[in-house]
Amino acid sequence: MAILTCEDLSFAYEGRSVLESVSFSLEAGSYLCVVGENGSGKSTLIKGLLGLKAPDGGKISFGEGLKSTEIGYLPQQTQLQRDFPASVNEVVLSGCLNSLGRRLHYSKADRLRARENMERMGIEDIGEESYQALSGGQQQRVLLARALCATKKLLLLDEPVTGLDPIATGEMYNLIKLVNLCDNITVIMVSHDIHEAVRYATHILHLGHKQLFFGTAAAYKESDLARRFLGGNRI
């Protein structure tokens, strides 16, 4: 059964259409990479999936008992977060926000979950350290641990490797693939890096103000679109 289905989705800002006719359906356990040039509507789609922006038309539906508030979201880093005084523990624990419900404070189970996700990301030893003093790669692991606290089913990652050095980038991709394979968590990732996208993802969604391609990564590699986008080089 599909975990996410979009039917003829369109988005507009102040009456100007930025993205239209997006229709695709994603099985649980898939790894979808959303690619496209700057301003092609990738971030808008993410905002739509998270419920931060209402679609202009069409429908988003979740399956497998997933609620829109149970998506693990890893946002593009903002300058705001980089100098925020917070310990790693505080940031990861805030991922349990959606399990608070009517409770006011985090429970023991929440703290345990935060701890487990820190261990998965290999950051359990830096819990007391300041988030702002960490390297870019470590900061992204912290945010990924926070995203994992918020979900058991679907991760939404917005440019998770932007600004990372090659080693940290590779580690980040591996961690994401690991979570995808071992925990059967569906991954939707927005990326600039088309080569890596094709390597790790099972499915590709190519946007350019509308849906240009949706299908498996293998089929995408054979498409004319991919060849043009990759600058003529076959992968």
Binding site: S68, I71, Y73, S94, L97, R146, A150
Partner: peptide, 22 residues
């Protein structure tokens, strides 16, 4: 005192908090 976890989350990352239903 009562809403400390939520205040932290909303201050740290408003979009994340909104996306997770706050």
């Amino acid at each position: 005192v009562l809403f400390y976890p939520r205040i932290f989350a909303v201050t740290f990352d408003e979009n994340f908090s909104r996306a997770t239903g706050t």
